[in-house]
Design a protein around this nucleic acid. Structure first.
Lengths: 142, 142
DNA sequence: TATTGTTATACTCTATAACTATA
DNA sequence: TATAGTTATAGAGTATAACAATA
């Protein structure tokens, strides 16, 4: 149950969650910008840290059209962050992996984000932190 | 204190918060798309619901350059959602307000977002919900 | 036939730099 | 001089539609 009275009115809980999310997004945006990356490229590097997914799998993960992924990977490849590799099992599929340079950028970026978000949560108690994990599991699943 | 071992490693708490934020952003993106709007236009309508800020104030709120706001308002104005009004106090400043059509769209959009986010929080307890408010206040301030 | 990925096209979003008008 | 806003330009991100290659 939420607190809204009319459907078109702002719900304090919904608003709080949206504001919180934009605050986190802002941190991610600024962190990525420090490494001269967009949030989408940040997400891409995150996905590739422990996987070499196909173009279609990246599209599914980012909830974007396949055609958008072609350009995304083009730009990342042009910057030397990722590489395309033809799948040996199915000649139609292209797998994407981080280059050494890309892995290095991903690591630095993760360190920056960790520091900034940790700073954002400076006033949070241990209970608050447990709650973040609980909430995320609830919403995202896992 | 977080749980990370090396600076470049993923911090579970940071990761959870990022995933949560992307999930919320996804809901906002899809909700906006249903009304044929971008997330930025959604944020703009939200800002204008109870205010008629100047271009500069909108830029500050969205953390964007003034020049980006010109285009943003151009496109919203072209769609009949907002209107520019010269300030009577300072001829340099332009205030932006929702039109009747814009207010209607904003209301419908809010209803959609409320429903979707409420659905996202379907499994949350009353304590979880209180915690969202607490966390948001902590991070965003207020 | 169905799926994977790319290309062409068009639009939104964003920043930088240079500008105009007003204070 | 300083501030508010716009314009020109360039680039990233995104979707739709049409396509080629492979299954």
């Amino acid at each position: 149950m939420s607190n809204s009275t009319r459907p078109g009115d702002a719900d304090p809980l919904v608003d709080a969650l949206a504001q919180l999310s934009f605050a986190v997004l802002g941190v991610l945006t600024r962190s990525a910008a420090e490494h001269d990356l967009s949030v989408t490229q940040l997400r891409l590097l995150g996905i590739l840290r422990d996987r070499s997914p196909s173009m279609a799998q990246i599209a599914a993960r980012l909830e974007l059209d396949r055609s958008s992924i072609s350009g995304l990977i083009d730009r990342a490849e042009r910057r030397g962050l990722v590489a395309r590799a033809r799948s040996p099992h199915d000649a139609r599929v292209t797998n994407v992996q981080l280059t050494a340079a890309g892995a290095e950028v991903a690591e630095g970026l993760t360190a920056t984000v960790n520091a900034r978000i940790t700073q954002l949560l400076a006033g949070a108690t241990a209970a608050d932190r447990r709650q973040v994990l609980r909430l995320a599991a609830l919403v995202v699943g896992g």
